[in-house]
Amino acid sequence: MIELENVYKIYRMGDSEVHALDGVSLKIEAGEWVAIVGPSGSGKSTLMNVIGCLDQPTAGSYKLDGVEVARMNDRDLARVRNRKIGFVFQTFNLLPRTTALANVELPLIYAGVRDRRPRAVEALERVGLGDRLHHKPNELSGGQQQRVAIARALVTNPAIILADEPTGNLDSKSGAEIMELFHQMHTQQGLTIVMVTHDPDIAAQCERVIHIRDGKIIGDEHNGDRRKVPGIAEQMKPSDSVILESVAAGATR
């Protein structure tokens, strides 16, 4: 489903070149739950932006559902972001002064959907906010805001959810609730989830963990299919991977 081949992303900072992605090759199948971990500046956010079609690679090939993204124009990229990908950000990124319902309706407006309200209500009910439809972001808690953001990501029925540190701004209880929500989305709807994080506990809950450092993939491990495991509580223990420990050390550094 997601196929990166020798992808480079090079930023020019004055005279020097920064290789944010340095020859990344990666394949993510439909229905996988993948965590991308790495210290800050490792290129994981850039990788996420490229996968999310917010950014285009400097060189290399990125195929989404077999379609080459690197050659798409602005309009096509916007359509892909709208239809195939749902974004969940660390800072929620909801429109201020706008109700939860209107925030969730927004992607549908750009998708040209006419009968938006029922779909938006349904998406909000799915994340457990059926009673907060007309609340504005500043009237909601962090966890609730992230739920609205997830509802917004889900409302267009995308195949992929891209989450950038989705629990980074939340307390551990809300964080666990949000993770539970991702778990549900994954197990019940078979959504492909790609999650950027530097929290080893979060990474441990994912089926597959990709480690990235200095723009290169340095590790790729499988934790087993989470869909076969019913509860989430027992998944909270960190993986015993050596590499993961080193990454965790890097993150706390």
């Binding site: 917010l54 602005d74 309009r75 916007a78 359509r79 709208n82 239809r83 974004f87 990124n93 992607p107």
Partner: peptide, 9 residues
């Protein structure tokens, strides 16, 4: 935000 969720130029 609008661009990320699918707004074109």
């Amino acid at each position: 935000i609008r661009k990320a969720i699918g707004a074109t130029r």
